[in-house]
Amino acid sequence: MRKNWWKLLGATFICISIIAGFIGPVPKLPILHETIRNVYFHVPMWFAMITLYAISVFYSVKYLNQGNPKFDIIAVEAVNTGILFCFLGLLTGMQWANITWGEPWPNDPKLNGSAIATLMYLAYLVLRNALEEEQKRAKISAVYNIFAFPIMIVLLYILPKLTDSLHPGSGGNSTFSDLDMDNYMRPVFYTAVAGWILIGIWICTLRYRVRLIENTRNRDVNNH
């Protein structure tokens, strides 16, 4: 229980945010109306994704320094889970865009940026498949992971601020905190963010442990 408290916390946070998100009061705004509740589900996906990618880069750096193969497994499973959250973020976003902006894929720098960032991480997975030898694969993919990360940060967080975007907080649009986030929404939103980040890390650790079991089983089969 001492080790698992954060998993329980994450699950509780998500339950709270779902219940409070669907039945709690929201400000009445033109165009957005009730769809503003999507902010509890769409935005936390991106927070969870970026946290997982950051974890992956952290473990790639650690792998290059220490050469422990476990760090490489953590890095790749963090990317796998991050890609899952990226697709969820795109799906919830497309649904929302369809209602408020009239089409599921408007030409918006943040949308295109996140699609390109996904390509970057899919390329990382392709690179891993192209390399047979385990140590070489771990090292070279760690190098690419670290190399691509700062460019992804530029793509997702700096370029949209420079160009016109439909998203809040970029291209002169006001941020959510100025406009919509009244005092009731703010705590629910932060609860949702923390909850989804914790759940993302939980999924990542589960996948990591499954991979470890698979690896030891493969080794046992090979030895006999």
């Binding site: 970057m120 691509a148 530029v154 370029l159």
Partner: peptide
Amino acid sequence: AILSFPVVIP
């Protein structure tokens, strides 16, 4: 090509 295109798009 696979590795460089996503990195060079920004």
